[in-house]
Amino acid sequence: MIYLFQILNGIGLGMLYFLLAVGLSVIFGLLQFVNFAHGAFYLLGAYLTFDLTQRGFSFWAAMPMATLIVAGIAAAIEALLLHRIYKLPHTFHILVTVGLALVIQELVIIAWGPLGGSVPAPEGLQGVVIAGDFIYPQYRLFTIGFTAVLAGLLWWLLEGTRLGAIVRGGSESPSNMALLGYNTMRINTAVFGFGAGLAGLAGALAAPIRGVEPFMGVEALSVAFVVVVIGGMGSYTGALVAGLLVGIVQSVMTTVWPEGARLMIYLGMALVIATMPRGLLGRA
């Protein structure tokens, strides 16, 4: 029973990792740009949700607001700063986004203090689900359902719509897209905002589960990297499989070996890389 509980927890956690990794992946796919500030956008999403609920907004209003604010800030950063550095070697992409992550993290500490806080589960989902002798928090069940719907929507958006086709076309050949009359600069800005918004949303959803603290961004960034390394960058299915795998491993290990749960994520990754250098699905 405890394992079923932990596997459900792991699926919830894994879906959040999936959101993070897809955001990272979409940005990389189009802009050939590793966003080291991705964890900072997750952090910002969580803190904005914390702040808005403290101000009396319902979680149902705070979550989309936080997501949109993060997306807006990210788009503004792209339009003002990042597009100037695309042509530089990737050392400088990393330097700039590491710098941005520091700025965001310090601003968060200035605005909300270094101690962190907790976000209550939203109204309507504060109870538990009881099935026989199995008891599970409603909010966690909601995140699984909600992120599953979101994952479906994302898949449809990226693979089934004209918008997705434009994004994929842009990652294949930006110059051809420009020749076809698309404003690639504006597409870049929108996609960066979109990808960062997904990180912000993951942060907003995670806030009621794990609370907020100023250094949650670093951990999120490295987990997103693990997911992307074993699942393959730019692979939707890879991100989903790897995200769930990492989430479930982490949760189940919390029962088996609590101190080593997070260590196991990275050991697992090392094992995958040692045996399958190209990652689980063998792409990229």
Binding site: L81, L95, V96, L102, L107
Partner: peptide
């Protein structure tokens, strides 16, 4: 925070 700006 200032260091971040220096990096940029």
């Amino acid at each position: 925070l200032l260091l971040g700006l220096v990096l940029v």
